[in-house]
Amino acid sequence: MSGDETPRTIVVYIDADACPVKDETYRVAGRYGLHVYVVANSFMALPREPWIERVVVSDGFDAADDWIAARARPGTIVVTADVPLASRCVKAGAAVLAPTGKPFSESGIGMALATRNLMQDLREAGAITGGPKPFSARDRSAFLGALDRTVMRLKRGGFG
């Protein structure tokens, strides 16, 4: 497959570099019979399932993001912590979830981008920002619930 499924099929794209919820995504996708594309710029070991596909892109800047964004559309689910990628995918109509289970939305993506840019500017200016808090079991559980709800919402919307 090439990542271009039929228009009403739910497909999951994982921005795989440093994604802590790949196994959880596989578990939910397996339950619903969804195809998962694991996109990274280097080889990554994956479960041997016909519905999980590895996509290795060039190591060019944003190559994985570009590959995912080019395929984002209504009915796709994108799992990423990358705010600029999330913004591109939300604008294309995809459902986008952070690994913490937080959905990115059309109404909130502008604020998320502004916060990201502010934090980047502070880091570049030498301010100590502390970085993100450690990923927790609560985050993992929130992600599982959010992904399940997202799949059910898309199914109710006529995707399958």
Rank of each mutant, 00 (worst) to 15 (best):
G3S: 02
D4Y: 05
T6H: 11
T6R: 15
P7N: 08
P7R: 12
R8L: 13
R8Q: 12
T9V: 13
T9P: 08
I10G: 07
Y13V: 08
Y13A: 02
I14T: 07
D15G: 08
D15I: 06
A16F: 15
A16E: 09
D17W: 14
A18L: 10
C19Q: 14
C19H: 12
C19K: 05
C19E: 03
P20K: 08
P20M: 14
V21D: 09
V21Q: 09
V21S: 04
V21Y: 14
V21T: 08
V21I: 10
K22M: 12
K22Y: 09
K22I: 14
D23K: 14
E24Q: 13
T25V: 12
T25N: 03
T25M: 04
T25F: 00
Y26E: 05
Y26M: 06
R27W: 11
R27H: 11
R27P: 01
V28Y: 07
G30E: 13
R31S: 10
Y32C: 03
G33R: 09
L34Q: 14
H35R: 12
Y37H: 05
V38A: 04
V38K: 05
V38D: 13
V38Y: 15
A40T: 01
S42F: 06
S42Q: 15
M44G: 00
M44D: 00
M44I: 11
A45E: 12
A45G: 03
L46M: 01
L46Y: 13
P47D: 10
R48W: 03
E49T: 07
E49K: 11
W51S: 13
W51E: 15
I52P: 11
I52E: 08
I52V: 15
I52N: 06
I52A: 07
I52F: 12
V55H: 10
V56D: 02
V57T: 15
V57W: 06
G60A: 15
F61A: 08
D62V: 05
D62F: 03
D66M: 06
W67A: 06
I68N: 00
I68F: 00
A70Q: 02
R71G: 03
A72M: 02
A72K: 02
A72L: 04
R73V: 06
P74I: 00
G75D: 06
G75Q: 03
G75Y: 01
T76P: 01
V79H: 04
V79M: 08
V83F: 05
P84K: 14
P84Q: 11
L85G: 11
L85A: 03
L85Y: 06
A86V: 15
A86W: 12
S87E: 10
S87N: 12
R88E: 02
C89M: 03
C89Y: 01
C89W: 02
V90C: 03
V90T: 07
V90S: 04
K91Q: 14
G93Q: 06
